[in-house]
């Protein structure tokens, strides 16, 4: 199959999932859009040279590494995540508050901690698979996950309480 057709099919099938992961990582629509677009440019640049690589882990690795390194470069986490969530109008279901609070708390984790949580608990990858995406060891994934979850419990005590109840 032509490599460009192959790429278009992959993006068509997985673009939405990549966008959702990018939003969880960045917490901001504009930043997520920039991250996905940036990833596509890198993917296109390397795609023709990439042989018969499985596109899923390949693209995922680019997305996550661009995210972490982009934050290193731009200190992006100080921008959108630091500001209070908008649309604070009503809380009929209680869900909105909890969602925004968790979202806000995610922004207070380090980029690598956030990436580890998204890979492990949103993309449901194993420790080894997450480690491969981030280029770190499985033990680092584990320790980062433990620290990140503990930090979330501290930052979102309401959510932590309900989850600890679930755990028991």
């Amino acid at each position: 199959m032509d490599r460009e057709v192959e790429l278009r099919e992959f993006i068509s099938a997985r673009g939405a999932a990549l966008s959702r992961a990018a939003y969880l990582l960045t917490g901001d629509h504009q930043a997520a859009e920039d991250l996905v677009q940036d990833t596509y440019v890198v993917v296109v640049r390397r795609w023709q040279k990439s042989g018969t690589l499985d596109p899923e882990p390949y693209v995922r690795r680019i997305l996550y590494s661009r995210f972490i390194d982009g934050l290193r470069r731009r200190r992006l986490w100080e921008l959108p995540w630091a500001s209070p969530p908008d649309g604070a109008g009503g809380d009929e279901a209680g869900t909105a508050t909890e969602r925004l609070t968790l979202r806000d708390a995610l922004g207070r984790l380090t980029p690598k901690q956030r990436a580890v949580l998204v890979l492990r608990f949103y993309e449901d990858l194993t420790e080894s698979q997450s480690a491969a995406v981030l280029g770190i060891s499985p033990s680092t994934v584990k320790s980062q996950t433990r620290v990140a979850l503990q930090r979330l419990r501290e930052l979102v005590p309401d959510a932590a309480a309900s989850l600890e109840g679930v755990e028991s």
Binding site: S19, E33, Q37
Partner: peptide, 9 residues
């Protein structure tokens, strides 16, 4: 959190 995220890119 991602329920209303559009497709970017």
């Amino acid at each position: 959190i991602v329920a209303d995220v559009p497709v970017y890119g």
